[in-house]
Design a protein around this nucleic acid. Structure first.
Length: 925
RNA sequence: GGGCCGGUGGCGGAAUGGCAGACGCGGCGGACUUAAAAUCCGCUGGGGAAACCCGUGUGGGUUCGACUCCCACCCGGCCCACCA
């Protein structure tokens, strides 16, 4: 009776042996090329989720493959151990965060070991250890000295559930929800510490030194949101400079109003007495609105005139100043020039508040329209239009005319000839004119707008309620698509700039503004500085002391770490226990020795994860964040793996942190991780996201107990492309379980009649060919993280071997070569069974210290192939031919085919396409 | 509203200009068994008796040849969204 595959027994045994032998502990070895393979470390929630397996098991396989290829591979693991859940557990269950965290870590270590990964546990990092977070504090102080850490009083996002502030990156979605708990954030004004990530905005946009997925690069680029434009100085009538930022300096002649953010510092000063009550009310409402219910915020534009005017510096036009909450104090200069003709937000605002809208950029699409209502034109107009070839629709005597661009001027002449004395006609789109019987009035300025509007109101009582020409025209459905555009085009109605082509307009205007000293080129970013203060206990204390005499005093380096006090009280007050810990709070000023207070906020846990990759090098180093000698050998990280959800958080922060580390002299290169791969998300059986509420959470422990870690590992890699994720299938895993059983039986079970008879040389050749083809396929697939097809190749190989075992090749040298390579190729994916079978076939421990096999191209080469024969692109026959076949011979074989003859049917081929090694296509059309 | 990614049998997926559906799940039939499970063997995109025809979200296009490239649309997912 053959011994059965018993994964539970062999996996535990090998894990123990590998640990005892320190098989996966690595050290600098200058004789071998290094490879730093990093996978994102887990938060110690207490249970290893199948999602962790999905990220880590393929990473482990790739790292093992590297190692077998001769690299000295560092593959470390640790725990992202600070964070709110520990504190919540303390409040809810009375467990100290320390106890909760380290208990969870203990359990997760066990689970991680059960995976059979080659983690180097001797380098484990736990970020809540003082020996770790001391260096967070050290970096903070360095950054502070460099001006990269600063404190400011400003409006910040506050999560009312987590009772802490959040960084801009940690507020997600349409409803501006807390990234962790999903509660909509509110606004608070607070003193907070920030890291100056904006200093590196441009450098962070440069991805030339890293090989990262396009998707992540795009997301980071959009997040940083660089906008090139200009600052333009408008003056208030009182003489204050009001600086606006715009990306469309070419539209400056169309500025018909100005909008300040409600928080803009000039608002109070400029507001007139009669508008003050209204303005104050609006400012208050704007600040409250963000604090009450974000969901109730409408998209409707609101604003208030502040009773003051500014002067457009390019044409001295006097324009009213408004405040409105669609202008954000945090972006640009907190003030904009309103150019309603070419900015949709300004357009909507101007229509609502009756502000003039003056087109100053020509339409590049040439769309031009005119509407001639019934009774406005004299007899013969329609005939004249027809004669000119100007198309129009006629409904109930009114004519809807879309004018071909080249006929616009001709149309204006015609319209003037036919327009009645008591009416007018207008043209909109590429020309803006009002046509009266006694003249054509250009609508090219605010004064002309007023004149035209006055005359129209006299002629037509129905438009007397219209405040602007645009309001009048907008009421006509037919015109709507011609009235507004935001394209680049030739400047019009713009004084000496009129006629400037769209491709140079922005630059010309910007240069001219600079010359006149009323503007300059400017760049703004959407990116905000990284707010790192958290009003929580379970994090790194910010090493700052506030002294009534000396002000803000950094904790001296020799006093680090500032240790979290263990005897804090965890009460459900929503406030940090540190606030009420007198022993922590009160401290002697390091400078004057007088009574002072500690900073009570802790750091965002993303600070911890921004540099953990370096701490793995020397986790217990007491002199530096990491040992520089090890750094020189191991850095940078060669391959990083993890989820894409961190694209604009962790992955952006760590790039920033690295550059800041470089600038304080800790590292001397520019990017922390050379290559990045984002795996997909493992879904529930129902293809939905796994969640407790859906009841579709898969527990890896259950499956490991039932079928073994190797099967779970292999199945996760077999589901599909790693980058795509996909649904877990409790049936699908049976496939890899069977596969492993078949491998086991193939290798372990002796054939009864072994050694009998001779073998045929052709069988040996075929077996060796397949062996080397499989080495090639699996090698190339693992190289490119295509685990699914690598496993498929191994399954095919195994299926053939199972059959071959019954033949005479069993027991030959070629057979042994096949078995040996099957095990070597399987080793990175299923390390336990590979090791076990390696041992059982008498091979030297450990398979994981063996060299990855190399395929021999000559042995792998086929000597025949299936020549596909097509007629007019459709397959009509297939013939096995030698690889060495010549073009002429291949064509002859094709034409000789009985089936082909039927389809060619005596016709002379117009063309015969020959693709070497693949097909012949006979074209007879 | 903007951007990115995807859509292939009953299911997960393979093939990324050249035999569509590798590999696996499921299903059907068979062997073994008193029986079941496990295992093994065979079949398995649809239509058709067959020759063949149809078939990769939909509609066009390029090509000797398109799942693959181009255009438009539909559907799904993700990210961003009053960013001047």
């Amino acid at each position: 009776m053959v011994e059965k595959y018993n994964p539970q027994a062999i996996e535990a045994r090998w894990q123990k042996k590998w640990a005892e032998d320190k098989l996966y502990e690595v050290h600098e070895d200058p004789s071998r090329p290094k490879f730093y393979f990093l996978t994102m470390y887990p938060y110690p929630s207490g249970d290893l989720h199948i999602g962790h397996w999905y990220a880590m098991a393929p990473s482990d396989a790739a790292a093992r493959h590297r190692r077998m290829k001769g690299y000295n591979v560092l593959f470390p693991i640790g725990f992202d151990a600070f964070g709110l859940p520990a504190e919540n557990a303390a409040i809810k269950h009375g467990i100290h965060p320390w106890t909760w965290t380290y208990r969870n870590i203990e359990n997760m270590r066990r689970q991680l070991r059960a995976m059979g990964a080659m983690f180097d546990w001797s380098r484990e990092v736990i970020t809540s250890d003082p020996e770790y977070y001391k260096w967070n504090q050290w970096f903070f102080l360095k950054f502070y000295e460099m001006g990269l850490a600063y404190r400011t009083y400003a409006p910040v996002d506050w999560c009312p559930n987590c009772n802490t502030t959040l960084a801009r990156e940690q507020v997600v979605g349409e409803n501006r929800e807390c990234e962790r708990c999903g509660t909509p954030v509110i606004r608070k004004d607070l003193n907070q510490w920030l890291f100056k990530i904006t200093k590196y905005a441009d450098e962070l946009l440069d991805f030339s030194k890293i090989d990262w997925p396009e998707r992540v690069k795009t997301m980071q680029t959009n997040w940083i949101g660089r906008s090139e434009g200009a600052e333009i100085v408008f003056k208030s009538e009182q003489g204050d400079d009001i600086i606006v930022f715009t990306t469309r300096a070419d539209t400056v002649f169309g500025a018909t109003f100005m909008v300040l953010a409600p928080e803009h510092p000039l608002v109070q000063k400029l507001t007139s007495d009669d508008q003050r009550a209204q303005v104050d009310a609006y400012v208050q409402q704007a600040s409250r609105e963000t604090e009450i219910d974000r969901l109730a915020v409408t998209k409707e534009k609101t604003g208030v005139f502040i009773g003051a005017y500014a002067v457009n510096p390019v044409n001295d036009v006097r324009i009213p100043i408004y405040i409105a909450d669609y202008v954000l104090m945090q972006y640009g200069t907190g003030a904009i020039m309103g150019v309603p003709a070419h900015d949709w937000r300004d357009f909507v605002f101007a229509l609502k508040y009756g502000l003039p809208i003056l087109p100053v950029i020509d339409r590049p699409d040439g769309l031009t329209k005119s509407f001639a209502p019934s009774g406005t034109m004299n007899e013969g107009f329609a005939d004249a239009l027809q004669a000119e070839g100007i198309p129009f629709d006629e409904r109930e005597g009114s004519r809807y005319i879309t004018i071909p661009p080249e006929k616009v001027n001709r149309y204006v002449q015609l319209a003037q000839r036919f327009v009645r004395q008591d009416a007018w006609n207008e043209v909109v789109g590429t020309r803006w004119v009002f046509i009266f019987h006694d003249g054509v009035w250009e609508w090219d300025s605010l004064e002309s707008e007023q004149r035209i509007l006055d005359r129209c109101k006299k002629l037509e009582p129905g438009v007397r309620d219209k405040r602007t020409l645009m309001e009048m025209l907008w009421s006509l459905e037919f015109y709507r698509d011609a009235l507004y555009h935001d394209a680049y085009g030739t400047m019009i109605h713009s004084g000496e700039f009129t006629g400037t082509p769209g491709d140079v307009a922005r630059q010309r205007v910007a240069e001219w503004l600079a010359e006149k000293g009323i503007g300059k080129p400017a760049v703004t970013y959407r990116l905000r500085d990284w707010l790192i203060s958290r009003q929580r206990y379970w994090g790194t204390p910010i090493p700052i002391i506030y002294c009534p005499a000396c002000g803000t005093v950094p904790v001296p380096y020799e006093d680090l770490p500032v240790v979290l006090p263990e005897d804090a009280q965890f009460l459900p007050t929503g406030e940090s226990p540190l606030k009420y810990h007198e022993g922590f709070r009160n401290v002697a000023c390091p400078r004057c020795g007088g009574p002072a207070e500690r900073e009570l906020d802790t750091m965002d846990t993303f600070v911890d994860s921004s540099w953990y990759q370096y701490r793995y090098l020397s986790p217990h180093d007491d002199h530096a964040p990491f040992d520089p000698d090890q750094g020189r050998y191991w850095l940078p990280v060669d391959q990083y793996t993890g989820g894409i959800e961190h694209a604009t958080m962790h992955l952006l922060y760590t790039r920033f942190f690295h550059k800041a580390m470089r600038d304080i002299g800790v590292v001397d290169f520019d990017e922390p991780m050379t290559r990045l791969f984002n795996q997909g998300i493992i879904l529930g059986e129902d293809s939905e996201k796994m969640s407790k509420s859906r009841g579709n959470v898969v527990s890896p422990d259950d499956y490991v107990n039932a079928v073994g870690a190797d099967a779970v590992r292999a199945y996760l890699m077999f589901i599909g492309p790693w980058s795509e994720g996909g649904p877990w299938s409790s049936r699908g895993i049976d496939g890899v379980v069977r596969f492993l059983n078949r491998v086991w039986n193939l290798v372990v079970a002796e054939r009864e009649d072994q050694g009998a008879g001779d073998y045929r040389p052709a069988d040996i050749t075929a077996l060796r060919r397949l062996t080397h083809q499989t080495i090639k396929r699996v090698s190339e697939d693992l190289e490119n993280f295509r685990f699914n097809t690598a496993i498929a190749a191994l399954m095919e190989f195994n299926n053939v071997l199972v059959k071959a075992k019954e033949t005479r090749v069993y027991g030959t040298v070629a057979w042994e070569e096949a078995i040996e390579n099957l095990l070597l190729l399987l080793a990175p994916i299923c390390p336990h069974i590979a090791e076990e079978l390696w041992m059982r076939t008498g091979r030297p421990y450990s398979i994981h210290q063996q060299t990855w096999p190399v395929w021999d191209a000559a042995i792998a080469a086929e000597d025949t192939f299936t020549l596909v024969i097509q007629v007019n692109g459709r397959v009509r026959d297939k013939v096995d031919v030698p690889v060495s076949i010549t073009e002429d011979d291949a064509k002859a074989v094709a034409l000789a085919s009985e089936n082909v003859r039927r389809y060619v049917d005596g016709q002379k081929p117009t063309r015969i396409v020959y693709v070497p090694g693949r097909l012949v296509n006979i074209v007879v059309r």
